[in-house]
Design a protein around this nucleic acid. Structure first.
Lengths: 205, 205
DNA sequence: GCGCTGACAGAATTTGAAATCTGTCAGCAC
DNA sequence: GTGCTGACAGATTTCAAATTCTGTCAGCGC
């Protein structure tokens, strides 16, 4: 830490995108989304704010990139669940449960930081949409595996993946974060999970 | 209409709760939730604002009552679906579809008014909670009927009703109102409906 | 007595002038 | 040439003064 509270940075080194992103995360964590300014980021890095604009075309672009990185890091564990060698129903339940647990953990562990990233992600519909497509693609893979093995029986795999995503929104949509500490949230999650899994594996239809 | 734009009111009549509620709805429609004041309501009725406080203990209580009435009126058609003589799966689908269509209609027909009532309802968690319990009670009735006739097979009727409510949130939670004009919203609704109905009627599980 | 009024205190909101920030760019230093 | 600076215009945000609102209540008129 230096006099400005920012991380020491070699004075005779070129400024990198990565350094700026780290400083931006730092400033956002400390000041929150409403107060964090490009000037603050530059101050932490001990450069002029003009230098920041050599690496990012706008404050918005910088914040979008920070949001993107956060989403990537937060959901990294999910890809592993998709790839694991296990029955599709188990993987689906595991995937949903990991998604819920991870997000709830972040929300309850540091609510302020979570709220900050919520704002950032909410600012950029493009980033959100790309991220959601990725999530639904993972669901599609699990479901189509299940159909191949006979564990699942659905007519429209893409539609079902979308339906699973929508049906479980209460447990992954940050809009509901304030309800994630309800005492009966785990029971509610189990009920919806059971309903969804039963719906996919139904022999009737 | 009089000089103040409010409905004419007999000058030599006692002020009633009902008149105040109607005036409040009028003012909220015209000025929106942020600008509507008790003084405005009194102005429309051509009385002093002290008179309004003889019938409602606070501005909050007045707004809560307005919100309550709106929820009641908006969801009146649903009770009929619960009571109709038809197979439970049909009734459940009809109930969900009516809920979605009605709300979407209100949201798209007059977005400003819808947003106004959204704010009012959001202000009072007590009103919301009571309303949601009522909705889930209706779901419970349909599902338990279905279990009795063998159309549905679930171990926990209350839990399933809650799960159906949660799984269909994207189509009735006003937080999603901005997505209700998406081009593929009907397909998404059908997918979730199919998943839910299949999940309830599953013979496996 | 009964219903209503209107003045009042404290709380909340509005307003607009001052301060700060975003984004650009000519020019400096190496 | 390459990377950085800092002054600048226009946009946005802040802050405190002034207005408006909420909730109460003594008292008026029928």
């Amino acid at each position: 830490m230096n006099a400005h509270g920012g991380p020491a940075r070699p004075a005779d080194t070129v400024l990198t995108r990565e350094e700026i992103l780290r400083a931006a995360e730092d400033v956002l964590r400390r000041f929150g989304p409403a107060k964090a300014t490009v000037l603050d980021v530059a101050r932490v890095l001990r450069v002029s704010h003009g230098s920041v604009y050599r690496h990012f075309p706008s404050k918005t672009a910088l914040r979008e990139t920070v949001a993107e990185r956060w989403l990537e890091r937060a959901h990294a564990p999910l890809a592993a669940v998709v790839a694991v060698d296990a029955p599709a129903p188990w993987r689906l339940r595991q995937w949903l449960s990991t998604l819920f647990t991870t997000k709830r953990g972040k929300a309850l562990d540091d609510p302020e930081l979570f709220a900050t990233y919520l704002v950032l992600v909410g600012e950029s519909s493009a980033v959100t949409e790309a991220h959601v497509s990725g999530m639904i693609r993972q669901l599609t893979r699990i479901i189509s595996d299940g159909v191949a093995t006979g564990d699942f029986s659905v007519s429209d795999v893409d539609g079902s993946a979308r339906a699973v995503w929508d049906a479980t929104r209460r447990f992954h949509d940050p809009a509901y974060a304030s309800h994630w500490s309800d005492p009966d949230i785990d029971a509610a999650f189990e009920s919806v999970c059971a309903l969804v899994l039963s719906g996919l594996s139904a022999t009737a239809g």
